[in-house]
Design a binder for these strands. Structure first.
Lengths: 387, 387
DNA sequence: AACGGTACCGCAAACGATCCCGGTAGCTAC
DNA sequence: GTAGCTACCGGGATCGTTTGCGGTACCGTT
């Protein structure tokens, strides 16, 4: 027994297909189609859930137009001080929260920055993000964080998400397997500034923030040499990452400076995972001509090496000197404490965000890419100093 | 050579006065006035910056209406399979990226979840977030992360931001100084589901996910007792946090079960900062009746205690047994390795997000708050076992 | 041939904000 | 008396979508 929603007729109604999963009817009497959707929807719309106040609500309450409300809230254009006061009060009274979505849509500006990082487990990236968020927040920007999980596929998916979210700018540290860059170019195509940090992409001409990996590595290896180590190995990172080759070069040049031979078999490569670190440690320490020191691409790797060496009864620093890179909090906790190259992690986030926000404000047209290399500092602890 | 904006005619156009500083034209062909305002605007729109394709662009390219495009993209309503195919192809060709903002605005649903955490430094919260994001991503939700930095004021600011961003739901772990809850109630007032985790708010009736702090603490202290420690102290957390009192109660009840006295001066409170941890360590270890074991509210605190004890020549576990809580990665690296209560950290994030998304889908009306307590596991290492 | 019914598509109103235009009231000045 | 000016306000287009409702072409029946 269906009743037409318009003429209230009953017997002139016949079924007429399905629209969006709902039965559609045709009333011969008033010659019109209808579904019961509308009524149902209204009926469903129950709820203690309060409607969120909009500028229209404020306008209605004060019997003025929404234009005036908007002006009052933003001090744009002419506005009577009393009107403004009234609007502000009413806004407070109604607990008005501006709808970011609507604002962003009309301004085509979201005040949101996207960040893509490969992982979240080591202390490094969270700390960078802290710094970045600090700067962003104080400039009134929100941050949406994506983890690529060291996978190119999800990195591309992340880029899509950020594009769809219409972020105003993006901060990226690449995956270790990123070899295509089209998903990065998409940003520049649409005028969205990108700044790379730490794991930067040389194929894209934009600003980059990194530490002076070469110099840090050089200092680290030099320190091992002057501490009396002679056969120094290196556990390097994935070769696609520029930081890996920079640190490797620093390692090699330090050896050369002191006329030490650079041996191929003293250089192994890790993909930065825990498993790979242990494998590298095994490989190096089971050699006949075992190295007497190792410079590791980062602290987590160095720590795995130390744990492995300790488990084999190899004494650090007596039998094996170890230097890491990044000054992970664990470095000062492990025994012996780990000598490492400190990088200004949070500052890297801050600097990258500063540069990015600058580009966002300027627009891509007159934005000059810069490459910023932050200084490192060698922290000498116990793992590299023979008593 | 002026071309009519309407009929594209050229020779039937004549000047017809000035309007708002702009030349006005009259087209005899289509009998209408026009200025070049619109055109100029387009002309101004310079830039290498490509316009991002919208459904209107797709519609124009295919000479169909945007409604059809929308339907084709979402399989809503009736759509000719061929049309659909054409739309999909064109979308690909134009590199169409749906505008989330516009979608959210009309659907009043953002597919975004807000997360508020107190900090980002320890491994705990990043790990929770990894779990939460994992579940969110696979359900098509984005995540926007806020740090309250253990400050009530910024926590309230965070709540505002999330409200303005119209998130569909919120995951919260409170600040240690949060004593007012109106900023939480704002969410429920507008029908936005909230789930607390770890540091939950008892004053708000909603779902909560935590670990069984009481039981974990009980097991930890019981372990110390059966290991032969008699004078067991406790470094507790801030009393406003429920987890602090739960762990304290577990501590006390374990003592009681074994007929050991609960001494007021063996219980000190930390605000979870590094500084406070060291102060607590000093306070406890400089007592005349020094404790022979300490159960700490979390691992970072336990580690500070251990470092302090080691610096004072106090041997662990011989002179001092230590048990922590949370199984921080550092716990297995420090020497001696730290006995701790493991909590399923990532799982906590996953579970909280699952519950939240469920509430988001159901709506607040028929959403029944649940309290989930995840099980802990005691990991016995060296710091609590006398050889 | 006419009509009921289906399959598909377009129109236009939302969503909540901004802001360009133009309007009006009131006042001054000539 | 009216022109011009100031100070303020409202109308309505716009951003990119979704979607209810109605229209149209066409097909099969009678």
């Amino acid at each position: 027994m269906i009743r037409c929603t318009k003429c209230n007729q009953v017997n002139a109604v016949s079924k007429s297909g399905i629209v969006r999963g709902k039965q559609r009817y045709y009333c011969k009497d008033c010659k019109s189609y209808f579904t019961l959707a509308g009524k149902e929807k209204i009926a469903v719309k129950v709820g203690n859930k309060k409607h969120m106040a909009t500028i229209v609500d404020i306008a209605k309450a004060l019997n003025i137009s929404k234009s005036t409300v908007s002006r009052a809230l933003h001090q744009h254009g002419d506005i009577n001080p009393q009107t403004r006061e009234a609007v502000l009060n009413m806004a407070r009274e109604l607990d008005y929260q501006p709808n970011q979505l609507a604002q962003s849509l009309v301004n085509s500006k979201t005040n949101t920055i996207g960040i893509i990082v490969p992982e979240f487990m080591t202390y490094f990236f969270p700390t960078v993000i802290i710094g970045a968020q600090e700067v962003a927040a104080s400039a009134g920007y929100n941050v949406i964080i994506c983890q690529s999980q060291e996978s190119l596929t999800t990195e591309m998916a992340n880029a899509h998400v950020l594009l769809s979210s219409r972020v105003d700018g993006v901060l990226i540290s690449m995956t270790k397997e990123t070899k295509e860059f089209d998903h990065f170019r998409a940003f520049e195509r649409y005028g969205i500034p990108v700044v790379f940090f730490n794991r930067v992409c040389e194929e894209i001409n934009t600003s980059k923030v990194l530490v002076d990996d070469y110099e840090g590595a050089f200092k680290a290896v030099e320190h091992l040499i002057v501490s009396g180590y002679k056969n120094i190995a290196h556990i390097g990172g994935p070769s696609v990452l520029r930081l890996s080759s920079n640190r490797l070069n620093g390692y090699m040049d330090a050896l050369k400076k002191y006329k030490l031979p650079v041996k191929k078999d003293m250089i192994v490569h890790s993909d930065l995972s825990v498993k790979a670190a242990i494998q590298c440690a095994q490989k190096l320490l089971s050699k006949k001509n075992r190295p007497d020191a190792v410079f590791c691409v980062n602290d987590p790797t160095a720590i795995q090496l130390m744990l492995y060496a300790k488990s084999k009864g190899i004494k650090i620093p007596r039998d094996l000197g170890v230097v890491g890179f990044s000054n992970d909090p664990m470095a000062s906790v492990i025994e012996p404490s780990l000598t490492t190259v400190e990088q200004p992690v949070a500052e890297m986030g801050r600097e990258a965000m500063r540069i990015l926000l600058d580009a966002v404000k300027k627009g891509l047209n007159d934005f000059i890419p810069v490459r910023t290399a932050l200084q490192t500092r060698l922290i000498v602890r116990q793992s590299s100093v023979r008593k």
